[in-house]
């Protein structure tokens, strides 16, 4: 299979709901063809909520068990691994030093520049901060993936006034990071990106450094309530079936495929639950996406030009500057 077919499979609405089940057999074939072992993966949790781990636990076909069996050679994952204490850290250390440029580093959570605020490991009275760990691991990893909006851009962990001085992973380690944002990231986004990396290397990224396959189009573009928007029919309160732009929907400025993909074994998504998209995949989430229940400006505050969603997000970021 070539990468174009893979992308098509990831995107095709007909396959969209079954992405995971498509990826796995391809990976099996791929590993069989190459006679290559599964790639070692280190999943490091930093300043975050474990929500992306839990989201991946919600994956189906491959489910978590199949991911561990057939996709990756998991070396370290604080939330799941059997080993603990110094032994767990040894596994991490050995993978980094013996599998140089062969392992994939996945980071969940922002990186606190106030290092004592996120201490991953203590030994003999010495603290090892998340910042130290990702800088150490980052130099040896073949690919670095940020999973979730905190790791991608700072996210809720870096929300104003950012008490821990947290930043996204790329800013902390000064190397290219493939960002799989979302609060949490959809399991398909994680698996699909990982699958692409395993088979073809780095995927094409959009302007914020995220795989174009999943983040290239806005929620608004394929929204199931788009026809209401086009006819100018708007919901007045939560629970109404119409377009929720006036209730605060951030779909027009949010790159994600939630409407076509849907969540939790593809049963629903926030707009189907009668609530606005809160823009959780965005670089400005949550500061620039709040208030959650107040509408985006219809005209740019500075120029009074009609809304250009991406420009608005950028100007909000500059003006409101939540990430000082």
């Amino acid at each position: 299979m070539d990468h174009k077919t893979y992308i098509q499979l990831c995107r095709d609405p007909e396959y969209g709901g079954r992405l995971a089940s498509v990826v796995l057999p391809r990976l099996r074939e791929f590993f069989a063809d190459k006679h290559s072992p599964k790639p070692p993966v280190i999943w490091l949790e930093t300043n975050g909520c474990s929500g992306n781990s839990v989201s991946l636990w919600n994956a189906i076909g491959p489910d978590l068990g199949q991911i561990l069996e057939d996709m990756i050679d998991l070396r370290f994952w604080n939330f799941l691994m059997a080993a603990q204490d110094d032994r767990a850290i040894e596994l991490l250390h050995n993978t980094a030093t013996r599998q140089k440029n062969r392992f994939i580093l996945v980071v969940e959570g922002a990186i606190a520049l106030n290092e004592s605020y996120t201490v991953v490991h203590r030994r003999a009275g010495q603290d090892y901060s998340a910042l130290e760990m990702v800088r150490f691991l980052g130099q040896f990893a073949q690919h670095v993936m940020a999973v979730g909006t905190c790791a991608s851009f700072g996210g809720p962990s870096a929300a104003h006034p950012n008490p821990s001085r947290s930043v996204g992973l790329e800013e902390a380690i000064n190397r290219k990071v493939i960002k799989v944002s979302g609060c949490p990231a959809h399991p398909d986004w994680i698996i699909g990106t990982l699958g692409y990396i395993l088979m073809f290397g780095e995927p094409e990224l959009e302007e914020h450094g995220r795989p174009r396959i999943f983040y290239g189009e806005t929620v608004h573009r394929h929204c199931t309530r788009r026809s209401y928007f086009d006819r100018g029919i708007f919901a007045e309160s939560l629970g109404d079936p119409e377009c929720m732009l006036r209730l605060g929907c951030k779909g027009p400025v949010t790159g994600a495929d939630c409407p076509t993909r849907q969540w939790n074994s593809y049963v629903s998504w926030p707009v189907e639950a009668n609530t606005p998209c809160i823009g959780c995949t965005n670089p400005g989430f949550p500061d620039q996406m709040e208030p959650f229940f107040e509408p985006l400006p219809e005209r740019d505050e500075q120029t009074s030009n009609p809304v250009n969603p991406f420009l608005i997000v950028k100007s909000w970021i500059t003006r409101r500057g939540g990430r000082s």
Binding site: F79, L80, I89
Partner: peptide, 14 residues
């Protein structure tokens, strides 16, 4: 005895 990190929990504990 120092046990760090305690794995299989959410967050960082020693």
């Amino acid at each position: 005895i120092e046990l760090s990190p305690i794995t299989r929990i959410s967050g960082l504990l020693s």
